[in-house]
Each structure stands twice: as structure tokens, then as C-alpha cells.
Amino acid sequence: MRVNYERCGYCGACVGVCKDMALELIENRIVIYEERCRRCKGCIIVCPLKALEE
């Protein structure tokens, strides 16, 4: 999973659906812990801005 920081609105919606705890919002930056991600793509679905991509 990758974050397009130019598009991200740092709202945290993606964090709220990440059951693997692979996402964290630190101030205005989404951080991905790749080793925890199980590619469920929930974060891609809820992102209002298309800021997440595989």
C-alpha cells in the first residue's frame, strides 16, 4: 500500500478500518507499517480522496 501525500487530506478514515493496525496518522502524515498489512484494501475504499494505492 502506498500513500500519495499530495492527495492525502489526513482525515484518518483509512486508519479507522484497518483491523491489522497497519496504519497510523501522525499529525498530517499517514504512516504504513507494511509488515502488518494483509492487503484487505479497506483503506482504499474509504479514502475520500483516492490518496491510497496498491
Binding site: 482525515c11 486508519v15 483491523k19 497510523e24
Partner: peptide
């Protein structure tokens, strides 16, 4: 909030 990490 929506991030819901702490309870988790």
C-alpha cells in the same frame, strides 16, 4: 475518534 486505535 474515527481512527479507533486505542480501544483496539
Amino acid at each position: 475518534g474515527v481512527e479507533s486505535s486505542v480501544g483496539e
